[in-house]
Design a protein around this nucleic acid. Structure first.
Length: 569
RNA sequence: GGGGGAUUAGCUCAGUUGGAUAGAGCGUUGGUCUCCGGAACCAAAGGCCGUGGGUUCGAAUCCCGCAUCCCCCA
């Protein structure tokens, strides 16, 4: 509805330009908004104010000019009024609102089949996922659902860094724990920068119970090949990746692709990228034999090492090759969800993409701010090497997937958040997600009750909703009709949290309506026309809640078990 | 020292390209109900939108300085 008003205004401006009343090069914009005060109508715009400024004419005259060329379809508006100092307010006819209810779950196709690669989580397989990963994971997954629903051709991807020093250290750690498990070591020779988490011991215990694993641990580490591709590293990363995958599945997150770094090196992808950059002069070899990316002329100041003097490519080199490869797979836009601590990395990657002939603006990095974890107000440390942290799996088990997802999505991604485990658990019965789910279950219950009485939800018809006369019913209708615009805007802006907030607003309005009239004007009554109209209305509420929750990856139950009464006599 | 983010009610947070009298949840206080599901609802109190300037008809929103917190880099 909102975009219809907006389109009408845009067309009116076009007409004014055609007539020469408005200079063609003059940019005049005025967004359509919803006035807070009911008396101002359903929609309003400050367009006359903007025009008055540009044309140096009184706003009232500008408003009159707009009205003159405005050509609204028959039956859409009840009235269009001018309000000082320069607003144009629109009131939509109830019939138009009711008609729009049919499209309440028809989402706008704002994506236009754009091919998007959405990469998120991508945590190194050196330990379990922690809560911070969870935030990015839930954001990415919800965004993917949103974009798919609005006609983006989006694919999701997890990038696995399975090459490098960290991986070598992981293998070394596993080997050391394996030797401890076999009684060959007392742990005093455990590598200084090794991964000390309990999970390494568990994997080691399972590994040495196999003949291959035991044999490998009985040999010195050097015999395995002290690099990042030996059997210990392979076993550890495979185990951890499986663990990560299961945790993500618990959070209802799956990926279209798991893209490994190793093939980029093995198949020459990194080398080809280096050759390209050396050829076009954006990279050079220094006196030590290292290859550096030339940063002059970019926002980043310092030349960045791609290949070290000893011939080892850096993480940066692999990342450049990886993103180059993404474009070559045919994606038009790349969205990466990164932790805020990677902020300084962005200019480098963008510059490298530009150097390889890609549009750097086609890479969009969404930064997710840190999650600080507390328990009863006390900070919980979150370092993998310290081995002492709360995993995403723990939190999912403790709080539940629906609640965790909704809690994460109830915040803007670029604001830091504190996640208090005690609070999350103690509030689990008052968690906003249950409030929304309860609303859905409530409507489902009404519909069930109607069905039991032999009354089905009626199909829409032009005079079906005439019986909706209560102000709350009009307000609910307007809220429902707003939904497609909310989804479209959230998808375009990559901000799923708007969906969560909308659902809270809608369900609050419903609970209020329900409670207020539970004794006087129930949905199901002896009045057949009111019953039919209200049944249709609440079924639309249920449909929108269901669609909204599923876009967030949260269940929409038809029934909820009431919590057990703690105050047993 | 350089860069990024944050600062809105007691607490946790929304606020859609600058618009009309600033929004919710929790908490507090006081109310509603012999029910289509009380995990509900209504009402009240609570704000110099960190601070100082600037831009204009108009600023929580845009620009600059400052303060505080978090993160990255050196």
């Amino acid at each position: 509805m909102e975009h219809r008003v907006d389109a009408l205004l845009k067309r009116a401006l076009e007409r004014l330009r055609d007539r020469g009343t408005l200079p063609p090069d003059l940019e005049v914009t005025g967004p359509v908004e919803r006035p807070r005060r009911e008396e101002f109508g359903d929609f309003g715009t400050a367009l006359p104010l903007a025009m008055a400024k540009a044309l140096r004419m009184p706003p009232a005259r500008c408003a009159a000019m707009i009205q003159e060329v405005l050509d609204p379809p028959e039956g859409l508006f009840q009235e269009i009024t001018f309000a000082p100092p320069g607003y144009l307010n629109f009131r939509v006819r109830p019939e138009a609102w009711w008609a729009a209810l049919q499209e309440a779950t028809t989402l706008p196709r704002v994506g236009g089949r754009e091919r998007v690669l959405l990469e998120f989580v991508s945590a190194n397989p050196t330990g379990p996922l922690h809560v911070g990963h969870g935030r990015g994971a839930v954001l990415g997954d919800a965004l993917a659902r949103l974009m798919r629903a609005t006609d983006y051709a989006v694919e999701t991807e997890y990038y696995v860094n399975d090459v490098g020093n960290q991986m070598a250290m992981l293998g070394l750690s596993l080997h050391a724990r394996g030797r401890e498990a076999l009684g060959l070591s007392d742990g005093s020779d455990f590598p200084e920068n090794g991964y000390r988490g309990q999970y390494i011991r568990e994997i080691a215990a399972r590994w040495v119970a196999t003949p291959d694993g035991e044999a490998a641990c009985r040999r010195p580490y050097e015999d395995l090949g002290p690099r990042d591709d030996n059997v210990a590293t392979t076993v550890a990363s495979r185990e951890l990746l499986g663990w990560i995958r299961r945790t993500l599945e618990d959070a209802r997150i799956t990926f279209d692709h798991w893209f490994h770094e190793r093939p980029l090196h093995r198949d020459g992808e990194v080398q080809r990228m280096l050759d390209l950059l050396l050829q076009n002069g954006r990279a050079f070899r220094d006196e030590s034999g290292a290859i550096l990316f030339r940063m002059e002329g970019t926002e980043d100041s310092e030349d960045r090492v791609l290949v070290r003097g000893n011939g080892m490519p850096t993480y940066f080199a692999a990342d450049v090759a990886y993103h180059h490869h993404k474009f070559r797979r045919g994606f038009q836009r790349l969205i990466n969800i990164w932790g805020a601590d990677h902020h300084g990395y962005i200019p480098r990657v963008r510059a490298s993409l530009e150097a390889l002939g890609h549009d750097p603006d086609a890479l969009q990095v969404l930064l997710v701010q840190m999650v600080t974890l507390t328990r009863g107000g006390v900070a919980v440390p979150m370092g993998k090497r310290s081995g002492e942290f709360v995993t995403l799996q723990d939190v999912l088990d403790e709080v539940g997937t629906d609640a965790v997802r909704f809690l994460f999505l109830l915040r803007r991604p670029d604001a830091q958040m504190e996640f208090d485990l005690d609070l999350a658990r103690s509030q689990s019965l008052e968690n906003p997600v249950y409030y929304v789910q309860y609303g859905h279950a409530r409507v489902a219950s009404i519909v069930r009750k109607a069905a039991a009485a032999g009354i089905a939800v009626p199909p829409w018809s032009p005079d079906l909703l005439q019986a909706l006369a209560l102000p709350e019913e009009a307000a609910l209708t307007r809220d429902l009709v707003r939904w497609p615009d909310v989804v479209g805007s959230a998808a375009r802006r990559c901000e799923p949290h708007h969906v969560a907030f909308y659902l809270l607003d809608l369900v609050k309005a419903f609970h209020g309506y329900y409670t207020r009239y539970r004794h006087t004007e129930k949905v199901l009554s002896a009045d057949r026309q009111k019953t039919a109209a209200r049944l249709y209305l609440v079924s639309r509420i249920r449909d929108v809640l269901h669609q909204g929750l599923s876009l967030l990856g949260v269940h929409a139950p038809d029934e909820m078990r009431l919590p057990e009464d703690d105050e047993t006599p």
